[in-house]
Design a protein around this nucleic acid. Structure first.
Length: 327
DNA sequence: AAAAAACTCAACCGCCCGTAA
DNA sequence: CTTACGGGCGGTTGAGTTTTT
């Protein structure tokens, strides 16, 4: 569809609007409505393209625009909606009366994005960042925990599942490293251990909110897991009481039925806040009762991005190793 | 006090989609 | 069915402002 540029007339004014231009535009729209934006500039006596007029009106001059700082509630709403809708600024804006998509977009890019990054949350996926650098920022993690705890239960539940998956990944990766590298006593293991200690202390904040957790399917898993991988894992566990205490809850995925928990009943629900979006694609139901520990592990889709990873295979392999492992 | 760096946000650009001719 | 148009959207820019060095 060969569409000519919206503004191919070099004589038309661009750049910041002058107060008198604003006045002309407001006067015209108040008298006649905007009608055809393309025709408006001529009728209103403005040397601008229609598109520029439309933007000026919708983003700045419209009388119902709310200006000033975003409230904490608004911040939370934006974060929640963004986790569901992504960069659908106009859809997000429909849930924040008086705020424009442009304003929300700017606010996100200049404030919220950085805030989430500081908290160790990936602003794109809304998951805990998998690189461990964020652990250098522990105070922000606590803040993150508090913020997330204020979010609605479904949102928080989903996030906790992601956190649980991420932490499970970390734990399993560390296990792999132990297996590959060394005897349990070597320094690398100790360092990893410290790292896990740190991370789990912080994860407490994320995990301490009662969410009507599903019956815990993993007590057996944990003990089997410990037995399976040998004594050094038990050593790690003994040294990491906090971690161990959280282990069960990390795997206790909230039994939330997404289809019965539509996020918003607002009239704008047609803009897409429905559960057929990406959240639904996340496995959030607790695993069904399983006959064996390995089956249970196999049913856990620990992370979307690594869902092709065969955890059961990993566990099977590790279970064949004898301990202590020497490199 | 001055310069540099970082931040903010209004405005623009180009693409896309729905619709009418 | 094709084409052109109107309007909406997300991404990006850059001037102005604020903060840091």
């Amino acid at each position: 569809m060969g569409r000519s540029p919206s503004n191919n007339d070099a004589s038309l004014k661009k750049g910041p609007w002058m107060p008198e231009e604003d006045q002309k535009l407001m006067d015209y729209i108040q008298k006649h409505g905007h009608g055809s934006w393309r025709a408006l500039p001529k009728l209103a006596g403005l040397n601008r393209c229609g598109k520029s007029c439309r933007l000026r009106w919708t983003n700045y001059l419209r009388p119902d625009i709310k200006r000033g700082k975003f409230s904490e509630d608004e911040e939370r709403i934006i974060i929640q909606l963004h986790s569901v809708l992504g960069n659908k600024w106009s859809a997000i804006a429909t849930h924040l009366p008086g705020r424009t998509d442009n304003e929300i977009k700017n606010f996100w890019n200049t404030h919220l994005r950085k805030k989430l990054l500081h908290m160790g949350i990936d602003p794109i996926t809304h998951r805990r960042r998998t690189d461990l650098n964020f652990l250098s920022n522990l105070p922000h993690l606590l803040a993150a925990a508090n913020l997330l705890n204020q979010m609605n239960p479904l949102d928080s539940a989903l996030r906790m599942q992601a956190d649980a998956a991420d932490l499970a990944n970390i734990k399993l990766l560390s296990l792999l490293q132990l297996i590959n590298n060394s005897s349990p006593a070597n320094m690398e293991a100790v360092n990893l251990n410290c790292l896990l200690n740190q991370s789990n202390t912080q994860f407490q904040g994320l995990m301490n909110k009662p969410l009507g957790l599903a019956p815990n399917p993993t007590d057996q898993m944990q003990s089997s897991f410990s037995n399976m991988v040998g004594p050094s894992w038990r050593v790690l566990e003994n040294e990491n009481n906090i971690y161990n205490n959280n282990f069960n809850s990390l795997y206790a995925i909230p039994s939330v039925n997404p289809t019965s928990a539509s996020v918003s009943a607002s009239p704008e629900s047609s803009t897409g806040i429905q559960m057929e979006n990406k959240i639904v694609s996340t496995e959030i139901s607790a695993p069904s009762s399983t006959s064996t520990t390995f089956d249970a592990l196999g049913e856990f889709n620990l992370d979307d991005e690594t869902s092709d990873f065969d955890w059961a295979d990993l566990i099977n392999q590790t279970s064949n190793l004898s301990w202590p492992i020497t490199s």
